[in-house]
């Protein structure tokens, strides 16, 4: 467990040192919450409007979606920053160490997911200030779901990054993947009222299950899928992508 905890320590130190970047990365979700959320909350303020959103006001409906989106984005960035470790050579320090490589990369991913969690907590805390219908009791299970998202997506980021040699083009991939995945996750509007082809895409989008589950815990909206499905899908994906990351990292040599 030595290298596992050491890698978490490293992520923590890097996180602390990049405080400005961390705060900067919170601006995006805050814009969504305040400008997008408050704007639509006014428009959806008519009798019966809450029926569209599972019985809650729009702000409350939106918060779990924004949290899931933020966690998703940041975990992916956490994962792919291993490219810097490759470029700046820190990877070699790990590869030549007399310690389990699998453990090292799991520590890297877990550490990343924990730091993303901290950002998630900040967003949630801010959300409680502007959305009235959120349930405090839902915070822990929602964070647990987010943690699974963090593990899965950071794992995916590492697996992708291990096959790439530079950050070039990543910005494009990010926007190309992130935006449609967010819109197709039910973060902004219900999956049930989407056109059928969109519903179909929403079902293969892992983010949908994170939004669905945390919306139940935080806002009390009845889940579109069953809670068991939400948990199993996210846990399964976390296991899958971490597994792939471990295999890739074990095989890693330097060129």
């Amino acid at each position: 467990m030595r290298i596992f905890s050491t890698m978490i320590y490293r992520e923590m130190k890097r996180f602390m040192r990049s405080r400005a970047r961390v705060l900067g990365s919170l601006i995006n979700p805050i814009i969504w919450l305040v400008l997008f959320g408050k704007g639509w909350a006014g428009a959806f303020n008519f009798p019966g409007a809450s029926m569209i959103f599972g019985g809650v006001d729009y702000m409350t409906y939106l918060v779990p979606g924004i949290v899931a989106m933020t966690v998703f984005n940041m975990s992916f960035i956490q994962g792919i920053t291993i490219i810097w470790d490759k470029q700046f050579g820190f990877i070699k320090e790990i590869l030549v160490a007399p310690a389990s490589r699998g453990e090292a990369i799991l520590g890297r991913i877990t550490g990343g997911a924990i730091m993303v969690m901290i950002q998630g907590v900040i967003i949630l805390a801010l959300s409680f200030l502007i959305a009235s219908g959120l349930k405090l009791s839902g915070v822990l299970p929602a964070l647990a779901l987010s943690f699974l998202v963090g593990l899965a997506v950071a794992g995916m980021g590492v697996a992708i990054a291990m096959r790439m040699s530079s950050m070039e083009g990543f910005q494009m991939i990010m926007t190309m993947i992130m935006l449609p995945m967010t819109f197709l996750s039910g973060a902004f509007y219900p999956v049930k009222t989407m056109p059928e082809w969109m519903q179909w895409l929403a079902k293969v989008n892992p983010l949908t299950y994170a939004v669905d589950g945390s919306r139940y815990y935080l806002a009390g909206v009845a889940p579109t899928f069953s809670l068991t499905t939400d948990w199993l899908v996210l846990a399964g994906l976390a296991a899958l992508f971490m597994g792939i990351a471990v295999i890739e990292f074990r095989r890693a040599t330097i060129d």
Partner: peptide, 30 residues
């Protein structure tokens, strides 16, 4: 790996961390 130390041709430190932290992480791993 247990018996060797290596200084690579290209830098392999963690640039974001301090000298002490780099040493600390190395020591923990070993």
């Amino acid at each position: 790996r247990r018996k060797i130390g290596i200084v690579f041709q290209d830098p392999s430190t963690d640039r974001e961390l301090t000298a002490y932290e780099n040493m600390y992480i190395h020591g923990r791993i070993y």
